[in-house]
């Protein structure tokens, strides 16, 4: 299972459309979730539409939250997406075995066993989550909360029985402002990492689309030489929640 979680607070303004990039991700079997972080009194209504569209194209969900809700939202989205991904794969099986379209279509007394399987797979399937963090100027006061949410997510992932890894990226990269930088390569433990995100002043551009494409590429590099591809394909449903 592969997820890309974008945390941002504004519209993209450089390069490829992030909606297109999200569609690319989905085609690669990566679910894209988006969290828009707003502070009290702050309005990002222009970005709201884009955030929703990115999530829709990426087969995931979107939420607007303030910094206090960030940790909980990251947790909730990750868990929900895991269940949905498994559910889509299971629904495929259900069509073949029971002729039922989904879990909901089964009579209640037959759901129990199916849901037990969903819960078990959700707990034990390997999971990779790439977090892509917008660190443009307006995000700077929110980065401490983002970092806390990342640590909190890792804590939760550590109690899963399946292998769970995260990677962290930020954008724009300070050099040319058109891509992202990898802050943390795939890992399941960040106890020794003092600071994940840089606290430097960033340039004003927001190249969300190009940054997402780089992360998708990073996922692909991670897959080279691995044989689990076929296994993962079963997990990538075509239905969107």
């Amino acid at each position: 299972m592969r997820q890309l979680l974008l945390i941002t607070d504004g519209c993209s303004n450089v390069g490829m459309s992030p909606v297109v990039a999200a569609a690319h991700a989905k085609a690669e079997g990566i679910t894209v979730n988006v969290i828009g972080v707003v502070e009290r009194g702050e309005s990002i209504s222009s970005a709201e539409v884009e955030i929703e569209e990115i999530a829709r194209a990426g087969g995931g969900m979107s939420r607007l939250v303030n910094t206090h809700q960030l940790s909980q939202t990251v947790q909730m989205m990750t868990r929900k997406t895991v269940v949905t991904t498994i559910q889509q794969a299971v629904n495929k099986e259900l069509r073949q075995v029971f002729g039922a379209e989904s879990v909901e279509a089964l009579p209640p007394d037959r759901r129990g066993e199916v849901v037990r399987v969903i819960d078990e797979l959700g707990e034990s399937s390997p999971l990779k989550i790439a977090l892509l963090i917008d660190t443009s100027a307006s995000m700077r006061p929110k980065l401490a909360a983002v970092e806390e949410a990342i640590r909190d997510l890792v804590l939760s992932l550590q109690s899963r029985s399946g292998r769970s890894e995260i990677a962290v990226f930020h954008f724009p990269d300070s050099e040319n402002g058109e891509g992202c930088v990898c802050d943390l390569d795939w890992t399941d433990n960040i106890a020794g990492v003092k600071r994940i995100l840089p606290r430097l002043a960033m340039r004003g551009t927001t190249p969300t689309g190009p940054a997402m494409m780089q992360v998708i590429d990073f996922f692909r590099q991670g897959d080279y030489g691995r044989t689990i591809r076929g296994e993962m394909d079963g997990m990538t449903g075509e239905d969107v929640v």
């Binding site: 909901e104 199916v114 849901v115 037990r116």
Partner: peptide, 13 residues
């Protein structure tokens, strides 16, 4: 959500 509720029912069962 039927899946979420069913997980809960499984525990109760």
């Amino acid at each position: 959500d039927a899946v979420d509720l069913q997980s809960e029912i499984n525990v109760l069962r």
